[in-house]
Every structure is written in C-alpha cells, then in structure tokens.
C-alpha cells in the first residue's frame, strides 16, 4: 500500500470545473463594464459620424426633432452643472455636519438611533424624491418667490437641486462618518490634553486628518448628482437653457437621454443617437471622478492602516 494516495483524477477534474466557473463569473463584471462602455461608444461614434463632435462640445443650440436639428450640448452641460452645484451646496454642509455630529458628539445610544434613520433616507428610491420635488418642493418654491414678487418656474433648477442635495446627504454623511471615526482617538486626546476645546480639536486635528476620505465622499456624491436621473426627469425642465438664474427651468444630460430614448424616434436617427453621445460624456466624467475618489480613500487607508472602509 502506498503511503499517500495518488491524486484522485476525477476529483481534480471537478475542482477544475468549479475553478473555471468561478473565473467565468468574475469575467462577467469585466464584460459588463466594457459592455456599458462599448454599447455607448459605438452608438456615440455613429452619432458623431452624422454630427460634428466639435459643435456638440461647444455649440449652444440643442434643437432635435426638426429638419434643421442642432446638437450643441453646452446648455445641457450648464443645466447639469447648475443643478449639481445647488445639490452639493445643500449636501456637503448638511452631510458633513451630520457626520461630525454622529461621529464626534452623539452618544452611542443616540448614534444607534440616528444612523438607521439616515439609512432610510439613503434607501428612498429616486423616483420618490422626484415625485416629492415635483409635487411638494417645486410649488413651494414658486409660491415663496411669488410672495417676494419674483417669478420662478415650476421646473426650476432650484427645486430639483435642493431635493437632489437631500438625496446625496446620506452618501456624504455615511462615508464621512466612517472616515472620521477611523481617525485614531489618540489624536483627539493629544489635542484635548493641550488645552484645546472639542470644537478646535475636531476642526484642526480630526477633520484635516480625515480630509482625503471626506473629499472622496464629496466626489462620490458629486458623481451621484451628475448621474441622477429621476429627480430631474420629474422636476427639472426639458428646455436646454443657458442661464445663471436657478429659478428658471433647465435641463440636464440625463433628462435629455431619457427624452431622446423614450419617444418613438427611429433608433438610427441623430435624435436617438444623441442620447448615447451624452451618455458617453456622463460615463467618462463619472469614471474619472470615481477613480479620483478611490485613490483618495486608498491614501487615507494607508495613512491610518484601516481596512474597514
């Protein structure tokens, strides 16, 4: 009798099959990313064969669906920028403030109660936020500015921007909270022992330490705002509008994508394909933001040797 059994060949085969299945599964995620990229890229290339890329990037007139249709996306980018700016103006201070409260001031008891509530906020579907923006916030804004004698549109950038900001609060607060809590307690103690107030300790020691993570959270929120669709589809306008006034109606990249694809246009018309050109822009921008965000959080992790983020 041999002291060690020879490798069971049948057994080896089974292991190999399983191994192969696992690799195939892992490949799907790669295929998906490239699937998204190429499905957008090919249609977008088709679009740019029909229309000028340069005009798309720099043109200020967007008028699809007419004989002399024009596809200058600048007003669309501007609207996206404005609504995103409003959203971030709401989400950054409130999200960060909430994170600071939860991680630095709240007792464990309070924290255990409040965190799930913020998670509910994070779990509300965007279509619901959109409904809320259109049916509650937008009319309230119109009424408020009416009482001041200022005209505001029912599809104002302000309404969708504010609600989008609220949607992003938990994105920023959750990650920032994790990062702030990962700053070692010895830092706080050292600062307090030097006779610093708690506020000074947080603002001068804790927050600067957590800064890469916080910026990463903000960038993640920014990327969410740029790609957000339902809120703007339901509460923002359809009209490409190059304006600085947040009370006017404006449109965004995502709104135009939906608008182009939901109609009964022919698939190969420039009207439809323009959606893919806009989608390509969105893809590239959010990809870059994500890469920046990931590298920042990696830096933070290395600095404090935390693995929980």
């Amino acid at each position: 009798m041999k002291p060690f059994a020879l490798k069971n060949r049948h057994h080896g085969l089974k292991e190999q099959i399983i191994h192969f299945c696992l690799i195939s599964a892992a490949t799907v995620s790669i295929l998906t990313t490239f699937g998204v990229l190429f499905s957008i890229l090919f249609e977008a290339i088709e679009f740019f064969q029909m229309r000028s890329f340069w005009y798309f990037i720099t043109g200020t007139e967007w008028s699809p669906g007419v004989d002399d249709s024009k596809f200058g996306a600048v007003p669309i980018f501007a609207g996206t920028f404005m609504i995103t700016l409003i959203a971030m103006a709401v989400a950054v201070p409130i999200g960060l403030g909430s994170a600071i409260f939860l991680s630095e001031y709240a007792s464990d008891f309070l924290r255990d109660k409040l965190k799930p509530l913020l998670e509910i906020l994070a779990g509300i579907p965007t279509v619901v936020y959109g409904f809320f923006a259109a049916i509650t916030v937008a009319p309230a804004i119109v009424n408020f500015f009416d009482s001041l004698g200022i005209h505001a549109s029912f599809n104002s950038a302000l309404a969708s921007g504010i609600v989008m900001g609220i949607m992003i609060i938990p994105v920023i607060s959750s990650l920032s909270d994790d990062v702030i809590r990962a700053v070692p307690d010895s830092q706080r103690k050292a600062s307090l022992a030097l006779g610093m107030t708690q506020g000074e300790t947080i603002s001068s020691i804790v927050l600067p330490s957590a800064l890469p993570g916080i910026i990463s959270a903000i960038i993640l929120g920014l990327s969410k705002a740029l790609g957000e669709t339902m809120i703007v589809v339901m509460a923002a306008g359809l009209r490409p509008n190059l304006s600085w006034n947040p009370l006017e109606d404006m449109t965004t990249v995502t709104v135009r994508i939906v608008d182009a694809l939901v109609g009964d246009n022919e698939f190969n018309s420039p009207d439809t394909l323009s959606a893919f050109a806009l989608g390509l822009v969105l893809f590239v921008v959010t990809l870059i933001l994500n890469i920046i965000s990931i590298s920042l959080i990696r830096k933070f992790k290395e600095k404090y040797k935390v693995n929980t983020l």
Binding site: T33, G35, V36, S39, G227, T229, F267, F283
Partner: peptide, 27 residues
C-alpha cells in the same frame, strides 16, 4: 483588473445601464 472594474461598475450612473440594456439585450 477585476477589482478595479467592480469599483467602477458600482459608480456608473444607473441610467447608463439602461443604455446597455437597450443596445445589447434589446437591439
């Protein structure tokens, strides 16, 4: 590559998955 991909996949705006569905699954 797989890891980077998963991170990026999570960050792609959901509407772009719609474009994928339209272009790949349907068309």
């Amino acid at each position: 590559l797989v890891e980077v991909n998963i991170n990026n996949l999570a960050a792609i705006p959901s509407i772009l998955f719609g474009l994928l569905g339209l272009a790949v699954f349907i068309a």
